[in-house]
Nucleic acid binder design. Structure first.
Lengths: 112, 112
DNA sequence: TTTATATACCTAATTTTCTTATGTATATAA
DNA sequence: TTATATACATAAGAAAATTAGGTATATAAA
């Protein structure tokens, strides 16, 4: 787990990236996917995630689809057309930011 | 200029890196150096910088040396031995974090 | 000459964003 | 029957920044 201050400001970008690459995902699923993909290094907290999802829905970036699974509720989120633009902008901006930080901190990034 | 949320959480790391690579720097100088190195993409605000410098001094990470230049005051900051450790840890942690974000967002970092 | 910009420090109120804590409820494994 | 996992949500508080304001000197431009 990274110190919490590092993760600040990356939540929306991460969520939009994951949702852009899949048809739809629900909140809990997003937390688990991020945990899995980062080997537990990033664990989104529900207290941060849910309000952010609600805000992005209110902004027209996401739409929801509530589904009953057994007796439990699942609220699926999908990226709207507007949201897809926002997602690309966010990811591109973060990519540029990372390049700037790599230069500023004189880092050697690993290649894939 | 990046959207302000991205820069959140990186201030201490940036300041410690710059101070580690130079003998001493004063607050205003740090803002100008960061602006110069990033082509204006990152501009530290004094309202964030000065309280952070004071906090790091109180924590024993930095020491100060006040100098008169003409009739103006300059407060030079240097990294202590403890601070050098903290600086390395911060930069290493951020480096690791960037690798994780590159993987998570599926980015292609530029090489130096 | 006076006005704007740059240098150089600082703090306080507010806002943004997150953590922590709490709540509801079902399903399942120990 | 008790703990853990699933699945949603909100609210109080903390952390970290922005915005706005203050003091003061130096210099370039109008």
């Amino acid at each position: 787990m990274y110190s919490s201050e590092l993760i600040k400001g990356t939540l929306k970008t991460i969520v939009l990236k994951l949702l852009s690459d899949s048809d739809k995902m629900y909140g809990y699923e997003i937390t688990q996917k991020v945990k899995e993909l980062t080997g537990g290094k990033i664990q989104l907290t529900e207290g941060a995630l849910y309000p952010t999802l609600h805000a992005m829905e209110a902004q027209g970036i996401l739409t929801t689809d509530v589904v009953n699974v057994g007796n439990r509720i699942r609220k699926y989120y999908s990226v709207t057309d507007t949201g897809k633009k926002v997602a690309k902008e966010k990811v591109n901006e973060y990519s540029d930011f990372i390049d700037t930080m790599i230069f500023l901190l004189d880092l050697k990034p690993k290649m894939g």
